[in-house]
Design a protein around this nucleic acid. Structure first.
Length: 1017
RNA sequence: GGGCCCGUGGCUCAGCCUGGUUAGAGCGCUCGCCUGAUAAGCGAGAGGUCCGGGGUUCGAACCCCCGCGGGCCCA
């Protein structure tokens, strides 16, 4: 016997042990197969996986298992993204560090060692978590971004970029984290709402008394670096005469914005005195508002320029600080302005900032506002809540700073990248054609340098003396001791001799970690250090990641790959969603709505978890719901019970698969459904539509197989040994179970393997593991569309009959004389003919009849509500006329007036006595609800049988055990059904008299009946 | 301001690409049933302006346009 209840824990522990003891994964992997190059998007080694990571790997595992069963030998190397700020930040926290200086004094070598140990430990912890989700990947041989052979792949890429003129060092305004003291890529900036000052500042126009240009900013701290003001050339500007406390000022700003801006200041009145276009303003000079506080500003000329990026918002005059804004910078370069940046790496003003030197920019805001106020240059001050960028790791608000950085010139590669996107198969299609293309179209040059420690060192050496630059494209060009020793600070000690006689030293930067993972498609197979695999496999056949990777891994990979090979590194991309909480919010620690994968697994098991996440469309976000998750488990339990049912009898009879017996209609039907299901699964998998397989599985196995097929064949399995009909049922059930399990095995590997070992291999020879079996392909010859359609109709009829019984209050246990199907459909007629036996037994009726028109009587009554107001006093006469009607007239003419019969008449159908009806899609079903004596006796017999069965159960008798039964009742009530009762209940003897043994008193339809049973030992 | 996705009973979602019976499922609810899969299982019923408005079409949840609401990303 199989366990009565599905216990995920027992199944899991047994199968995990079985796999391990027998090295099943290794054996499966050794099998030959067609190539399928899958590249694992490396999760960052944070130490714990979350729901989304778990979903991601389960999705990958399912596809890999499917591919293996389908004759492929997919690559399944897991990857780990191990460098970068997140780990540095963690280690810094552990050590209590606050700045880079803490690291330097601690020692970079020791710091790097800590980072490495931390990353390795996290990797191990996460590996265990993934293994516990039954993810089969090559865990003993992962690719790691910290390995020399991997770092080499990044060096190779940067050398290619250099050779193609796509590597550039330039001063550029970048996202800067002053806590981490490094540049950040756009992909590393997270946006959320932040409250900032919103100030309107008056810049005094040179040589014109009391005249000002009005600008607006949310970053007062950038004012010390102001170098210019920008206006839009074709926007209309105004000089406004404004009066405050009797004092007159002239303010220059966009005309259409004047009222709203002046309204914010304390002006008593204002009027436009002059207007001009933006282009007329060019060259207008002004004095820096903080020239006294920042004396260096006195050295430079400040004037108005025009620029197209200016919009009619705020004041229409934009404060330009080329050292602190991307557009500002570009304008600055164009106009030959000083790229003035008085802020250091830590976000602290340098000496150049005069009065503010030594202050942190975030703290300086208030002081600057005060100074402006004191100088009467502050027109208005407000607060604003707006989206502002933050460092993705330490959450510090970023600032923009002009610094020297290394860039990949994406701007020159964009067209090629966009072309490559079109060649990739995207699932869903819009992931590529819309979302990704949009990102790439707007991409700027990629800043790949970081002023940090824990990363792949940028392999650029520069001569101290002559500035000559050398880009190293292979680790073989330098000495390295072991594969983990290419990190800082060791690499910093490597120098080259320059032609000029000087020493070449490495630039101190490390790579953006997105560059690390960007080279995964060849780094993971150690190219170019080793060539064979690359030549055989590249590019990847398939990758899958979440939609956040649009600007992450999908992008970084495409960029590096186009640089190196002019080609996309992947052929197909499945973009999956995010896991959200039940309300559709992001899961986050601060909201306290985080659900851990382990928590889910402990409640519903690994297979339950996997099926749950694979149940909905992968590209949709997944709102996690406990209710839904448990629901999956209930369905799995039905699967369990269905297989257990089949097993019980097949096992009892020692069935061996092969014998087919005589297939009946229901057998042929479910076998047809099985092949339709297999077909659907294959088609869906080819499109990576995993959810369709899971849904089809539950539909088929729970709905069709368990709830319908097994229901129908139940009596057949307790026929005598060797009955051809019973053998046919066994054959059918086995085939269904065997093939269904193999279809669903990639999704629910543990329970499938368990059944394979305990059930499938009990009745036929098999492989050592279900994962050495092949994935079923549909045998289309067995699909019988007509039969499937007929069964749908039969189901509808049975359902309607149940409905009618409900109305007539006749339980299913009570047999009924007749079922009439009224229909005009030939298909229904054929279906009834074909499947009569099934309908009869499922409806528990003796006879079924199909008619075009059931002999019912109609009663026609006038609709007084309608005719009353129309016919007034003639209504009574009309009623008489209606009473004479025998059938519904097509035309209704009364007293020369034509009436619409549909409105004027109410039709009542009266069924002949004793009938009840219910509708079904193709007609109406009628049952005859009265029971004659003969039917009553059968009904009683069934009632008695049911109660004896329950008593057997209470005594915990074996299914096969015989008993003696005594019933205290009038034997006439079940006359003619004695043998039936005996055989159904395995009673050797049935007597009507004093009950002995285990005795119970029952109330059967109002009659007291005492039943006694004695077990036959 | 721009791009993308989503909006279907109380809840979670299929269906939409490829227009065509009376729009489905599960959960929940109400009422029943079954009892040799049984601390399970099954059925029926109630419950839907398929976000709104236009358009195309003989016909629109589905295709097109314009809105509204939510989410993500970008400015």
């Amino acid at each position: 016997m199989l366990p009565a209840k599905y216990s995920p824990k027992n199944v899991e522990s047994e199968i995990f042990k079985f796999w391990e003891d027998n090295e099943i994964y290794r054996k499966v992997k050794e099998r030959k197969g067609r190539k399928f190059y899958f590249v694992d998007g490396p999760p960052y080694t944070t130490g714990r996986i979350h729901l989304g990571t778990a979903w991601n790997k389960v999705l990958k595992d399912t596809i890999l298992r499917y591919k293996r069963m389908s004759g492929f030998a997919p690559t399944d190397t897991p990857g780990w993204d191990m460098h970068g700020l997140p780990i540095e930040v963690k280690v810094e926290q552990e050590l209590g560090f606050r700045t880079k200086r803490d690291i330097e004094s601690f020692g970079i070598d020791k710091f790097i060692e800590k980072c490495m140990n931390y990353a390795l430990a996290n990797k191990d912890a996460m590996t265990e978590q993934f293994k516990n989700l039954a993810v089969w990947m090559d865990w003993d041989r992962p690719y790691m971004t910290i390995k020399a052979e991997y770092m080499n792949a990044a060096w190779f890429a940067i050398k290619r970029a250099y050779e193609r003129g796509l590597l550039e060092r330039k001063k550029m305004v970048v996202n800067w984290c002053y806590r981490c003291e490094t540049a950040l890529a756009d992909a590393e900036v997270e946006y959320w709402d932040e409250e900032d000052p919103s100030i309107y500042v008056k810049f005094p126009v040179k040589g014109e008394r009391d005249t000002y240009i009005v600008i607006w900013t949310t970053t007062p701290w950038t004012l010390p670096a102001n170098m210019a003001v920008a206006v839009h050339p074709s926007l209309e500007y105004a000089k406004v005469r404004a009066v405050k406390n009797g004092k007159v000022e002239y303010l220059i700003l966009a005309k259409e914005l004047a009222d709203s801006v002046l309204g914010k200041g304390d002006y008593d009145a204002w009027e436009v005195v002059e207007t001009y276009l933006g282009e007329d303003l060019e060259g207008l000079e002004y004095e820096h508002p903080l020239a006294e506080e920042v004396p260096i500003q006195k050295n430079w000329k400040h004037q108005v320029f025009f620029a197209d990026f200016v919009t009619a918002e705020n004041t229409g005059c934009v404060h330009i600080a080329p050292g602190h804004g991307v557009e500002d910078y570009e304008l600055g370069v164009e106009k030959g302005l000083e790229i003035f940046n008085p802020v250091d790496d830590r976000g602290v003003y340098t000496e150049k900032a005069g009065k503010y030197a030594g202050k942190h920019v975030r703290e300086a805001n208030d002081e600057i506002i005060d100074d402006l106020y004191r100088k009467d240059l502050l027109l208005a001050e407000e607060k604003i809540v707006h989206r502002y960028g933050h460092c993705w790791r330490c959450k510090t608000p970023i600032i923009y700073r002009a610094t020297e950085q290394w860039f990949i010139k994406i701007s020159e590669l964009k067209d090629e990248m966009l072309r490559e996107i079109d060649k990739v198969k995207w699932i869903p299609e819009w992931a590529g054609s819309a979302r990704f293309k949009d990102w790439v179209s707007n991409a700027k040059d990629w800043c790949i340098s970081r002023q940090r420690y824990w990363g792949i060192p940028i392999p650029v050496w520069i001569c101290e003396k002559c500035g000559e630059m050398k880009v190293v494209g292979s680790i073989e060009e330098i000495d390295w001791e072991n594969d983990l020793d290419l990190h800082r600070p060791k690499i910093d000690a490597v120098t080259f001799d320059c032609k000029c006689g000087g020493k070449m030293r490495r630039v101190p930067d490390v790579f953006d970690v997105w560059f690390d993972s960007g080279v995964a498609s060849w780094g993971s197979i150690a190219y170019p250090l080793r060539k064979e695999k690359f030549e055989e496999l590249w590019p990847a056949d398939f990758i899958t990641e979440g939609h956040d990777q649009t600007r992450g891994w999908f992008y970084s990979q495409l960029g590096t790959s186009v640089v190196c090979f002019d080609k996309a590194p992947y052929k197909a991309v499945l973009m999956h969603g995010f896991t959200l909480d039940e309300q559709g919010r992001k899961m986050s620690k601060s909201l306290g709505n985080v659900v851990e994968p382990e928590e889910v697994v402990s409640q519903i098991g690994v297979d339950g978890f996997r099926l749950y996440v694979l149940y909905s469309a992968p590209w949709e976000d997944l709102r996690f719901s406990w209710e839904e998750a448990r629901n999956i488990n209930r369905m799995l339990n039905v699967v369990w019970n269905a297989i257990r049912f089949a097993y019980t009898y097949m096992n009892l009879d020692d069935y061996k698969f092969g014998e087919k017996g005589e297939l009946k209609m229901e057998d042929r039907w479910i076998l047809s459904k099985l092949e339709s299901f297999v077909k659907e699964a294959n088609e869906a998998m080819e499109e990576y539509q995993v959810h369709r397989v899971v849904r089809a599985f539950f539909d088929f196995f729970v709905e069709e197989f368990s709830r319908w097929y097994i229901q129908i064949i139940r009596p057949r399995v307790w026929e005598e040994r060797d009955s051809p009909s019973k053998i046919a049922a066994y054959y059918t059930m086995f085939r269904v179970i065997d093939r269904s399990l193999r279809v669903i095995a990639p999704f629910a590997p543990l329970i499938s393997e368990w059944f394979y070992q305990h059930v499938v291999k009990r009745f036929r020879d098999g492989e050592e593991s279900i994962f050495m079996e092949s994935y079923p392909e549909p045998e289309e010859g067995m699909i019988d569309g007509k039969l499937e359609e007929a069964m749908d109709i039969a189901k509808d009829i049975v359902e309607a009959a149940a409905n009618a019984r409900n109305k007539a209050k006749r339980k299913l246990r009570w047999p009924l004389r007749e079922l009439v199907v009224e229909t005009s459909s030939e298909k229904v007629r054929e279906a009834v003919e074909m499947l009569e036996e099934i309908i009869l037994s499922q409806c528990n009726v003796k006879k079924i009849r199909v008619v075009d028109n059931f002999e019912k009587e109609i009663e026609i009554k006038p609709n007084y509500k309608y005719i009353g107001p129309l016919l007034k006093e003639k209504a009574g006469e009309f009623a008489k006329y209606v009473a004479s009607l025998k059938e519904i007239p097509e035309k209704l003419v009364f007293e020369g007036e034509e009436l619409d019969p549909k409105q004027a008449l109410l039709i009542d159908y009266r069924l002949p006595d004793g009938y009840e009806y219910a509708e079904f899609p193709e007609g109406v079903v009628y049952i005859y609800k009265e029971l004659d004596d003969e039917l009553m006796r059968e009904a009683y017999a069934r009632e008695i049988v049911r109660r004896i069965q329950e008593m057997r159960k209470e005594l915990d008798l074996d299914v096969e055990e015989f008993i003696q039964t005594m019933v205290e009742m009038d034997p006439e009530l079940v006359k003619g059904w004695e043998e039936y009762i005996k055989s159904e209940t395995r009673s050797e003897k049935l007597t009507f008299g004093k009950a002995e043994g285990y005795v119970k008193e029952w109330n059967v339809e109002g009659k007291k009946v005492r039943i006694g049973i004695v077990r036959k030992s």
